[in-house]
Structure formats: C-alpha cells, structure tokens
Design a protein around this nucleic acid. Sequence first.
DNA 1: TTAAATTAATTCAATGATTAATTACATGCA
DNA 2: TGCATGTAATTAATCATTGAATTAATTTAA
Lengths: 226, 226
Amino acid sequence: MTTAKPSSRHPRSRGAGRPSGDDGDLRERLLDVAAAQFARTGIEATSLRAIATEARVTPAMLHYYFGDKARFTQALIEERLLPAVAPLREHLEQAGDDPRALVEAFARGVGEIVARNPWLPPLWVREVLCEGGSLRELMFSRVVPNLPQMLAQRFAVAQARGLLNAALDPRLLVVSLVGLTLFPAAGAPIWRRAFGAEELDTDALLNHTLALLDHGVGAAESGDSS
Amino acid sequence: MTTAKPSSRHPRSRGAGRPSGDDGDLRERLLDVAAAQFARTGIEATSLRAIATEARVTPAMLHYYFGDKARFTQALIEERLLPAVAPLREHLEQAGDDPRALVEAFARGVGEIVARNPWLPPLWVREVLCEGGSLRELMFSRVVPNLPQMLAQRFAVAQARGLLNAALDPRLLVVSLVGLTLFPAAGAPIWRRAFGAEELDTDALLNHTLALLDHGVGAAESGDSS
DNA sequence: TTAAATTAATTCAATGATTAATTACATGCA
DNA sequence: TGCATGTAATTAATCATTGAATTAATTTAA
C-alpha cells in the first residue's frame, strides 16, 4: 500500500504535484463529462471506460477520485444535480398565488435551469421518470422533496378562491406542467429532426406554453396578457 | 452442424417436436418479456441473459429465434412497436379538421395504445426521445413517418380558418400535445409516488388534458363541452 | 524527498455470441 | 400398431470481449 488513497473523500488539495497539463480540476471535468454522457446514453449503459476515454484519462482516475460507480453517480447527484435544480424552488416560492404566475414561474424556472444544464432533461427523463431509473428514489428524497405536492397545494388554494379553472385537478395540473416544460426540453433534438432543421427556440416554446395554458386551443376571444 | 438452424427466418411451424410444456409460442413470449424489460431498464442496459432468465429459458434461445441482439430488437420493433403504434394514424385520419377534435383524437388514441401496451411510453421516452436512444432513426423512418408534420399541417389549416388560437404555433402545439399525453403515461409510477398511493386514472387524465386544452388554467367563463 | 496525481497492468465477473449435445414429438414405414 | 427416424425446440457448455475494481509503478511539482 504505497499508493496514495483518498478513498473516502476528495483529494481536492491544489498545490500538490500534479502532472496534469490539462485545464481545471480533473475531478470537475470528470463530473461534467459524465453528466453529458449519462444524459446521452443512460447511467447503466454508460461505462466508466467511456467516460474516462472522453475525458482523456485512464479509467483508474474514476476510482481514484470517486471510488466505485455507485459513489461516482452519488457525487454527480450531489455536485451537479442538486445545485442545478435548487433554483426552481426559489422561483416558485417567490411567485404569488395567482395560478398564471405560478405556471409562468415554473416554466421560466425550468427554462433557465435547462439552458444552464442541457444534460439535465434527458437525464431526468431517463433516470427519474422511467421505472427502472437509477435516480428515482434519490430525486424524491433529496432533489425536489415534496415540491410536486407543494405546487399542487397552491393550485388547490387558487382553485378554492375561484382563480383556477374548476375543471382541473391540481395534481394533474402539476403533471401537465412538467410534461409541457421538461418533455420538450428533453426531446429538443427530436423536434428539430421532426420539423426541419430549425433550432427549437426555447423562448418561443415558453411563450407558446404560456399562451396554451392561458386560453387553450380555442380561438382566443380576448387579447393575451403576457 | 447437426444443429437445426432456422438461421435467417422464424421456425414458427407448430406440429414439430417441441418439449415446451409452457404456454404459447416462446418466440412471442420472448418479445413480450423483452418489451417489458427494455421499458424498465432500457435497451442497452438490458442483457439478453436477463431477458432469458425472466422468460425461464436459456440465453441461447434468443440466438436461436432471433440471431443477435441487433436483430432481436429489430424484431421487437417490427412485431411489437409498429403494430402498437399503427392505430394512432387511423384515429387521426378519421378526426375532422376541428382542432379540438384533433386534439381529442390524439389524446384518446394515445390513451388506448398506452392502455394496451404499458411498456410503450417508457420505451418511447428512453429510446426515441433521448439523444442516445436506440430507436431514434427507426421511429422516424418507419413508425410514425411524418406524422408530426401531418398533425402540424392540419393545425395550421385550422388556424388559417380561425378555428385555432392564433397565438399558438402549430408545430409547438404538436410538441405540447405529445408532452401532455405521453409524458404522464411514461411517468405513471412517479406520479403515484409523488401524490400518494392512488393509481393514476387514465380517464381522469384524459379529461383533465382536454379541459386544460379547452379553456386553459384561467377560471372557465362558459360550461365545458365534453 | 515526499506526497499527490496519473498511467499501466491485472483480476474477476458479466455479457454477447455461438456450438454441440439433448429432448420430444410427428410422421413414414413395416 | 409399433418402431425407427428426422427435425424443431431446448439445454448445457464454451469463447472472446467488455466492464468494474484494484494494485503497483511512475511522474510531477511543492
């Protein structure tokens, strides 16, 4: 055992002898590369080898910095997923009780998060939404604990005050809202492919979503209020 | 080479000596098991061994009936995915030009398909929507060739006639529609988990979606028309 | 010269793919 | 009717490859 073993915790310490002629912290780079690759291929289907290769290092580096794959994904969650999603909560808490404001806050918040972390939607869809996803439990217990319930609750209050379409179910509205925002983001490449080469304009999507939620599909009788 | 080799094509033929004390065609069963497992774990991350194990047979059976993994998934697409999705096209073609009717036809069609093939939404989300999905190209070229464009086109026509909210983009409306229908279906387990133990009622979801698309989130001024 | 950072090489299990042997039935033939 | 035989269906066993995890050796800078 002459090997240096950071085993449980990150080495971090700068200043030590590191031959890395590369850019910033390798540890960070590994997380970034992994986030992108996990989003592309899925966590289970992505080999540590592939990550290491894309990061131009040996697979052993992953073991050096993170231990095993489980702890690696754990680190990814702690240091990428959680910080990325955190702003959404604030967005929502700042929004008033008006359901339209809530909806807009949610859609705008998701939009910003996605803009900053393009890898997030595919990862979320794959690993949280789907049944066998690796991040299911974690997402619920740590990332957005009872955020869906909180949102539904506020919709329910708005509905009781007559501010929300009475035909809607507050909880299903949350589901719809997520579907309208995260789903298109996750599928951006596909829409591009389906509807010609144009990039999916996130601003346009946001406005469209709000317009849809404002009036529905029927021809609007009054002007919009955005 | 004393081995029987159906190599290129399905053996199919009944009447021959088959020790299988099991139920129907093993070939079919393998496809069903695989569909479920692929939906749960993802195609890449699912081993042939796992499929064989769950089907209570040897991995060699997969090779016997299908060849390699690529041809196996190909068969799954041809014999499960394509037939499953086919009805949607008819549904849409029968619907009139009224956007509400179109929307309802789509939502109802998706609902029926999902009810019949619970494995479809997760598989679709994973393998078609996401970038690294294995079925991307195939889906577009074979399963629903230019169906999105067709839908968008009809929305555009309706819009030109003043039947559709002018603030909407026909193509983005298609995106929203898919998000509102497929996404909740794919995430059914999660909503169950998020909002207590109740099953996600697909009928309720359908009605909710239609209500949302009819009037938006604002308090409705007129009675519903369902 | 010391310790962090990194590479190279190794081990072990799992996977995809394949082959050879085995089973069970159906049919032809006596 | 009963037996031999061919063939589809299936299992057991094998092989090469890949992946995760580990260890030892090497580089680099403080």
